[in-house]
């Protein structure tokens, strides 16, 4: 148990280390020169060279990485090349919104995906199952932003029942918050919902044909208990795997869908920073996202050990 935990932590640290190297390397992998970005297009080579040395870009690469990591470990992600605003502040301003949207999308995906999957499994190979499967196949194929646009045009523009743009946190104003987040959450959660419904369906079908289900039926355990306790807990193991993968996709989806709904979250910050070649902001945002994904995966692993006693510790 302890060694398993230690092994897990080592692998998490290695992942973060690898990610930090990749993020650091963005400056060199992505076309564009930060010094040119700062000095401006009309700058003379001398001015550019001056900026370059001010930014420390002439130092040995290992030293630059060391400085970068030193900052990261001290909560300093650098400052925007344009606004001179600390990247940490940008993240602190935009991340909560994005996370709220991601969670809202996840709630939609789980709350709809799991019951749909169970319903399909219980009626496997009937018309209802066919409809649910068709919907989830479509859900996987439809791009989030396109679905978002459709939702906006129907609910916000044609029927005008929900706001088309903007963001209100449910913690500030629950009613307005829900009204603003319903459509983005649906748009963000659609793909994950479809994936979860599919996985739940196939896992439930498999589990319901397991030997232990026959044992329980032979001993008179009611079908209700077999489906909702035994089959669901067994099926939740592969479903949790899918949810874990989906959270990474949800973050990606949120970044895209934010722009559709005019919400200035992490996605907006990332998009504008990328087009402006604002390297520190791009690096900071990506690093934070990677960190979140790693944390989510760690939590998923903990959840596994709780769901499946055959797994030895984290």
């Amino acid at each position: 148990m302890v060694t398993a935990l230690r092994r897990k932590l080592v692998s998490v640290l290695l992942t973060l280390l690898f990610a930090s190297v990749m993020v650091f390397a963005i400056t060199y992998l992505v076309p564009g020169d930060p010094a040119v970005v700062v000095a401006g297009e009309q700058a003379t080579p001398e001015q550019i060279a001056l900026v370059r040395s001010e930014l420390g870009l002439d130092d040995p690469i290992v030293e630059q990485y060391g400085r970068f990591m030193w900052g990261v470990l001290h909560g300093d992600l650098g400052t925007s090349l344009f606004t001179r605003e600390p990247v940490v502040d940008i993240v602190a301003r935009t991340l909560p919104r994005t996370m709220e949207l991601v969670v809202a999308g996840l709630v939609v995906a789980i709350a709809a995906g799991i019951p749909l999957g169970i319903a399909a499994a219980m009626r496997a190979r009937t018309a209802a199952d066919g409809v649910i499967r068709a919907v989830s196949t479509a859900g996987l194929a439809i791009p989030n932003f396109w679905f978002g646009l459709i939702l906006v045009s129907i609910f916000a523009l044609d029927w005008a029942v929900l706001p088309a743009t903007g963001f209100v946190s449910v913690f500030d104003d629950p009613v307005e918050g829900l009204a603003h987040q319903v459509l983005p959450a649906l748009a963000i959660g659609l793909t994950a919902m479809a994936a979860i419904a599919r996985q739940t369906r196939s896992a439930m079908i498999e589990v319901l044909s397991a030997d232990f289900v026959r044992t329980q039926r032979a001993m008179g355990v009611p079908a209700r208990a077999i489906v909702w306790q035994h089959a669901l807990k067994n099926a939740s193991i592969p479903v949790v795997t899918i949810i874990g993968l989906d959270i990474s996709r949800l973050i990606g989806g949120a970044v895209v869908v934010e722009t559709v709904f005019g919400i200035s979250g992490l996605g907006g910050a990332l998009v504008s920073a990328t087009t402006q070649r604002d390297f520190p902001v791009v690096q900071g945002v990506i690093l934070v996202v990677v960190f979140l994904v790693v944390i989510v995966n760690l939590l998923i692993d903990v959840l596994y050990t709780w769901l499946d006693p055959r797994i030895q510790g984290v």
């Binding site: 397991a210 044992t215 001993m219 035994h230 067994n234 193991i237 499946d308």
Partner: peptide
């Protein structure tokens, strides 16, 4: 009541 052959798979692995 009925009991079955496969002692490995005939019990639910995730419940005591």
């Amino acid at each position: 009541s009925m009991i079955f052959q496969e002692p490995m798979t005939a019990l639910d692995p995730v419940f005591t």
